[in-house]
């Protein structure tokens, strides 16, 4: 029994790891620009697609240990590239406009990216499963095995969480981002280019989503609709944790990841509903989520 619980725990941590990557980007962007990015899941999908596509091209030429690094770099670069295009070109124009236009704009970007994926990579799922199989599985007791790659994803999630904490509290850029989120005018007045901070923050968020998509890809596939599906869970995370809070994104992704595992195991009919019921309950008592700020 105890090893089953251990299995649930690991599975929950696994979901939580990549959900955190998506939700963290969503929450960082919202924290500064106050825009809820409906296209954020599409950046996650871009990460998965670029990684799968690049590995399909060059995986034969490079030694297996390098795969893991290249997957992450490819996913991050792909999503960052899209971020560099859409923030200055589109998103910047709607800061401060009515929310319905902000949401509609990111919805439009989502639709466009979905079809660009179809145009570039075709209607069939892209897969590159070798990194997943290469590491094999480890025994977790009681005759149960768990793929080692799952632990890699979990470790990546925690590493990036640690990096984000360090970045936001200890580095200069992180502190400037936080100050711009707190007060845009004063940050501009003390001589920082707020426009470029917005762009950098968006690229950071996009990169996190891209890494999330890239590291999940070997255990799944890159396919159409991926960006729309993941967003549903990432939203639940930021609603529970509170929009704009990294701590909230971390705790929220753990709650959603664990709920999902328990839900699938014991209440498969209401798995998704269970997650959102928790979100609604949190909102009833804490309208801005656990760590949300107005």
């Amino acid at each position: 029994m105890s090893n089953i619980i251990f299995l649930y725990l690991i599975s929950g941590l696994y979901y939580a790891a990549y959900l955190f990557l998506v939700a963290a980007g969503l929450t960082i962007i919202f924290g500064l620009a106050r825009v809820v990015n409906l296209a954020h899941g599409a950046l996650y999908a871009i990460g998965a697609y670029v990684a799968a596509w690049l590995m399909g091209l060059i995986s034969k030429q490079i030694p297996p240990p390098l795969w893991y690094i290249i997957i992450i770099i490819a996913g991050a670069a792909g999503a960052a590239f899209v971020g560099i295009i859409i923030e200055p070109l589109l998103l910047r124009r709607v800061y401060g406009r009515l929310e319905e236009f902000q949401l509609l704009l990111t919805f439009a970007i989502l639709l466009i990216i979905e079809d660009l994926e179809l145009m570039i990579w075709g209607p069939y799922p892209l897969a590159f499963k070798e990194p997943y199989h290469y590491l094999g599985a480890v025994s977790i007791g009681g005759g149960l095995m768990y793929p080692l790659y799952g632990f890699v994803v979990i470790a990546m999630g925690w590493l990036i969480a640690l990096f984000l904490w360090f970045f936001m509290t200890k580095t200069k850029l992180g502190i400037i981002i936080r100050s711009a989120a707190a007060n845009k005018e004063v940050t501009a007045a003390i001589g920082h280019n707020v426009k470029s901070i917005y762009t950098k923050t968006f690229i950071l968020g996009a990169t996190l989503a891209g890494i999330g998509g890239a590291i999940v890809m070997p255990s799944a596939t890159a396919q159409l609709g991926l960006g729309i599906d993941i967003l549903v869970f990432a939203f639940a995370v930021v609603v529970i944790g509170g929009l704009g809070s990294l701590k909230g994104a971390l705790v929220g992704s753990l709650i959603v990841g664990m709920t999902r595992v328990v839900g699938i195991a014991y209440f498969p009919e209401i798995e998704l509903a269970l997650i959102w019921l928790i979100a609604v309950i949190v909102l009833v008592f804490r309208p801005l989520g656990l760590w949300g700020r107005e």
Partner: peptide, 17 residues
């Protein structure tokens, strides 16, 4: 935005049901 997301969640609960 909180109204928007709450309604999004209601819609998804109905969907999953």
């Amino acid at each position: 935005i909180f109204f928007s997301i709450l309604n999004l969640s209601f819609g998804l609960i109905i969907y999953s049901f």
